[in-house]
């Protein structure tokens, strides 16, 4: 590119000097380096995901999803862990969603600007950064032993609920923050109380954002292994019925349960003589599930954002 500039007019005012050319070259190199960094990040991961799906392809079928594991998970499908993950997510959501949303409401609508609020914010940040295994230790100490719940679905769900609390709080707060102050002021001017304003104006206008938070919680809860490893997930439970409708209600709250993430851990490290496809199949379904939940959240978010009128 430097050549062309050189040949048109040597010494002209707007021709590139060697300094300019060097700069241009450096610019090009920099841009490509940055671009390559992105590719270095994205390409191997897409390749690995592709490989996982390729290896998993022979077992992926509706039967694989629908059937319970048999013969030490070497045969059959992944229904029991899948429904276990569903219940884990559901119970943790029932616990954490109201608390998290109300906490977000408090922090955005009520909390005064003082040291106390700052320390709550700091607590939210720290909570988000606590390693999952430490959550597991906490769950084991607090829910399994101290509260006497034993290793159970309820103990694991409570642990997951504590772990995902900051996800919901942060998402709720951001959603509420996006509602223009003028909306609230208009409502207050009409004589509505604070809660009435929140209930009728603020919450309905921030449902989308809160929903995003909830969905992110679901994705996080569905993928975690370390906390449930210590609080109630097990490698195998033969108690899951094979026939509908019973197979939809396999665990009660005091039961230990199978979960998809735990199942992946088990098939990749615990069960001897298992086919490679079964391992990759479990990994593939877990990835698909998480990606599906996340894309759903992304699509929902952009749809609702597009619908916004302000």
């Amino acid at each position: 590119m430097g050549k062309a500039a050189n040949s048109t007019g040597a010494g002209g005012m707007f021709t590139a000097t060697s300094h300019d050319r060097r700069k241009a070259r450096r610019e090009g190199i920099a841009k490509w380096t940055f671009f390559c960094a992105c590719l270095l990040l994205i390409v191997p991961v897409l390749a690995i995901l592709g490989y996982i799906f390729f290896e998993a392809w022979p077992v992926l079928s509706w039967e694989y999803i629908w059937e319970n594991p048999r013969n030490n998970s070497r045969e059959g499908g992944i229904w029991a862990p899948l429904i276990g993950t569903f219940y884990l997510v559901l119970v943790s959501l029932v616990i954490v969603a109201p608390v998290g949303i109300l906490a977000g409401v408090y922090l955005n609508e009520y909390a005064p600007e003082n040291w106390l609020t700052r320390s709550i914010n700091m607590a939210v940040t720290s909570l988000a950064g606590v390693p999952s295994i430490v959550h597991g230790l906490f769950g084991a100490a607090a829910f399994v032993f101290a509260a006497g719940l034993g290793e159970s679905l309820l103990a694991a769900s409570l642990t997951i609920a504590v772990m995902t609390l900051p996800v919901i709080i942060t998402a709720t707060r951001e959603a509420l923050n996006a509602v223009p102050m003028a909306f609230r002021e208009a409502c207050w001017n009409m004589g509505a109380t604070r809660w009435q304003t929140i209930r009728t104006i603020v919450l309905p206008n921030s449902v989308s954002g809160m929903l995003t938070g909830v969905i992110l919680e679901v994705a996080r809860a569905a993928g975690e292994t370390a906390p449930i490893l210590l609080t109630g997930a097990i490698i195998f439970t033969p108690g899951v019925p094979d026939t509908a409708p019973d197979k939809f209600f396999p665990y009660y709250l005091g039961d230990q349960f199978m979960a998809l993430s735990m199942h992946l851990h088990a098939v990749s490290t615990q069960i001897a003589g298992i086919d490679k496809e079964m391992q990759f199949g479990t990994a593939a379904v877990l990835i698909l599930l998480i990606l599906f939940i996340n894309s759903f959240s992304a699509v929902l978010r952009s749809y609702l954002r597009a619908r916004k009128k302000w």
Partner: peptide, 28 residues
Amino acid sequence: EPLIHALIFFCGWSAIFCVTAIFVFIFK
């Protein structure tokens, strides 16, 4: 309304409560 306010205040503190509980339990 007062009840709801109390609930919101209580939940607002949940994060602090959880972090403290984690520290207390694992330290204990």
